[in-house]
Structures are given as C-alpha cells and as structure tokens.
Amino acid sequence: MNAAAAISTEQVWAWLAEVADPEIPVISVVDLGIVREVAVADDGACVVTITPTYSGCPAMQVIADAVTGALRERGIEQVELRTQLSPAWTTDWMSEEGKAKLKGYGIAPPAQQVIDISGLRRSASGAQDLAAGVRRGAVAKPTVVCPNCGSSHTENTSQFGSTPCKALYKCFDCREPFDYFKCH
C-alpha cells in the first residue's frame, strides 16, 4: 500500500497514454482526449474521469475496462471510473501527436468542428444560430487532405464510415479511398 501511495498523477497519465483505442490502435485514449482527469488519493485509490466520444460509441465499455485493467496491472487496486458528459467531447481535444499518428495510420485527422457549442451557449440569440447551423451551403466543407499523398483534391463519398467517428473520402490524385476522422 505504501508503494501505491507514492504514485503520482503524472505516472498514471503516462500509463494511460499506453492504453490504445480499441478501434484505432495507433492512438491512445489520452491522445483522443477521452481521459479528462486523473486523481490519486493519499491511500493510493485512483479516480479516472473519462468522457464518451459519441453517445452510442460501442468502444466505451472496452475503453473503460482497458483503463481499469491497465492500472490494476500496475498495482493500483482501487480504481474508480467516472463518466462525465459535460463539456461534451470534441475532436479539438485530440493531441497534435494523436493527429500525426492518425495520419501515419492512413486516417485523415479532423479538420474543423461540426458545430461550436460554446458559441451557442454564450449567444443570446440562440435560435438564429441554430437555424444557420443546418442551412444548406452555409457551412463550409472542410478541406480534407489525403493521408496517403498529401493532396487536398479529395471528395466525400460517404458521410459515415466503419465507425460513428469516421467518414469516407477518396483522393482524385492518388486514387486511393481513405477514412476521415470527422470533426465533432
């Protein structure tokens, strides 16, 4: 128990940085921005706060188990996982390192946000902002760069891909189809 008490939150963050996302194994749950907070009590008990990417993301349970498992393996017996909805997860929280790793893996990283919630909250005329958010053509299409050849001459072929967080694109230059990690 004394050994556990000496563990720092930095150490826990470092361990969690090794926990891979189950669906995109090249990035960690820390790179993704899923882990929001780590707290270690004096008695060694560890509280990890995580946030879901998408409401129905089927990987969340696997991620929760992986986080708990990784800390237990390192000798932390008391691990508590808390789920926090607000502030809602956004791809802005993805680390630059994570984006680079995604690209290296063949997935184009997110290029903009789908809708800026913080603006909506601040604005007094929320109703108008809402209507603008879904007006056709009002929202500029993101420039998605092909992860294979670097060309921005690409086109969206499907708004959804193999997981809720991805869309499908194709590159007109190298002719390769690729996954795009949607902005969220």
Binding site: S55, L85, A88, V114, L120, H184
Partner: peptide
C-alpha cells in the same frame, strides 16, 4: 450538449 453535435450531423 452531448447529443447536439450528433443531431446536427
């Protein structure tokens, strides 16, 4: 807040 981005899409 969690749902809005999904619903927008």
């Amino acid at each position: 807040e969690k749902s809005l981005k999904e619903v927008t899409y």
